[in-house]
Amino acid sequence: HDSLYLAAESNLDTIFGHVSALKPGLIIVDSVQTMHAAGVEGVAGGVAQSRAVTAALTTLAKSTGIPILLVGHVTKDGNVAGPRVLEHLVDVVLNFEGDKQSSLRMLRGIKNRFGATDEVGCFEQTATGIREVSDPSGLFLSHRGSTPDGSAVTVAMDGVRPILAEVQALTVDPVAKNPRRVVTGLDSNRVPMVLAVLQARAGERTNDKDAYVATVGGMRILETATDLAVALATWSSLHEKPLPPKMVVIGEVGLAGELRPVPGLDRRLAEAARLGYTRAIVPNTKVTATGIKVRKASTLREAISLLAS
């Protein structure tokens, strides 16, 4: 392309010469760990070299007004590799992350000197490259029509972006003496707790059944707002009764069987209404929602009774 220039260079002084000659509108350095600065001890990618290279490129961006994107390696934990001072020197840190089993990729802000860090960009990895996903909720719903038994739709929050997610549960007679609890995509410690509350506070026998609980589409949800979806999906599987169509359920379940409010409830309901959902069961709290019929419940037992009404 006439306006795209590539330089296979790792010497910082050579890069500065190219910038002075071309005066580009954008500079991308891939990766910062391969660059080295003259006069600085250490190998490329080391602490001293990475610090010096990042400081020099930051000064270049501030003095010329040219935006510079630094591509950096990450550790196995997902943190930026190298000294932590790199994150302090730059203005914005973005993580491009995703699960190996899913085509969905998230661009997540970790640091931003000029704005909020709770915005999330959704993209899909395809054979022709990466494309934007304007409606990621569709990736995490297995159906658009009738609801099968053992399935409940909830609304999770990824930063400030609400995403509809489907929770599925399957309860069967145990093969072994001890019933199993198999969890995929959810908190493996919290799901057994919700099943215990379902039995103790709502009178549903779950201790003599194998329970398999999972999310659809490889989505991983760790927030407590999905507790009610787990409980009602399990109830649906136990009784082989599907939940009413076009219904979302949102709420945290306490050990006493009470439903607790969750943050961002109005935004979650607005997203559900936008996607055509007409009914919702939520905790008994103040809600401002339009386009969706909201039923409030104070306890898990009361939420189950609302399914038949």
Rank of each mutant, 00 (worst) to 15 (best):
P179C: 11
I110C: 15
A176K: 08
G159L: 07
P179M: 13
K209N: 04
V167Q: 14
Q199R: 11
P136K: 02
T128L: 15
S142F: 00
S134W: 00
S102Y: 00
R144L: 13
S146N: 11
A169I: 01
Q125N: 13
N189H: 06
N112W: 08
L141F: 00
R144W: 01
E124D: 13
I130V: 14
R181Q: 12
H143P: 01
L104F: 01
G185Y: 00
L195E: 05
L139N: 02
R113C: 07
P192A: 07
L164C: 07
V133M: 10
S142Y: 00
V93N: 13
R108G: 04
R190V: 03
R105A: 04
I110F: 15
R205S: 13
R205W: 04
V167A: 14
H143A: 11
V197G: 13
G121N: 08
T184I: 09
E119R: 13
I130C: 10
C122I: 05
Y212F: 14
G145D: 15
L186K: 07
P136F: 00
G121D: 11
G121Q: 07
M157R: 02
G145I: 09
A196Y: 05
P162R: 12
F114A: 09
G98Y: 00
V155G: 09
F96L: 14
V160D: 15
T184H: 05
P192W: 12
D149W: 08
M157A: 00
L164S: 05
G121R: 09
G203L: 12
F96H: 02
A202N: 04
N207F: 06
R180L: 10
L104Q: 10
T128Q: 15
V153W: 01
R161H: 14
K209Y: 03
S146E: 10
E132F: 04
F123T: 06
E166D: 01
F123R: 12
Q199T: 08
M106S: 08
D173M: 09
S134F: 02
V197E: 06
R201G: 12
L186Y: 01
F123P: 07
V155K: 10
N189T: 03
V153G: 10
L170Y: 03
L139Y: 01
V183Q: 09
V194R: 13
Q168M: 05
C122G: 05
V153Y: 01
I110A: 15
K177L: 08
T147G: 04
M193T: 12
A211E: 04
P179A: 13
S142N: 09
N207T: 03
R105K: 08
S134P: 00
L198K: 05
V182F: 03
R144Y: 03
D158W: 12
I110R: 15
L195I: 01
V93F: 10
A176C: 12
K100P: 08
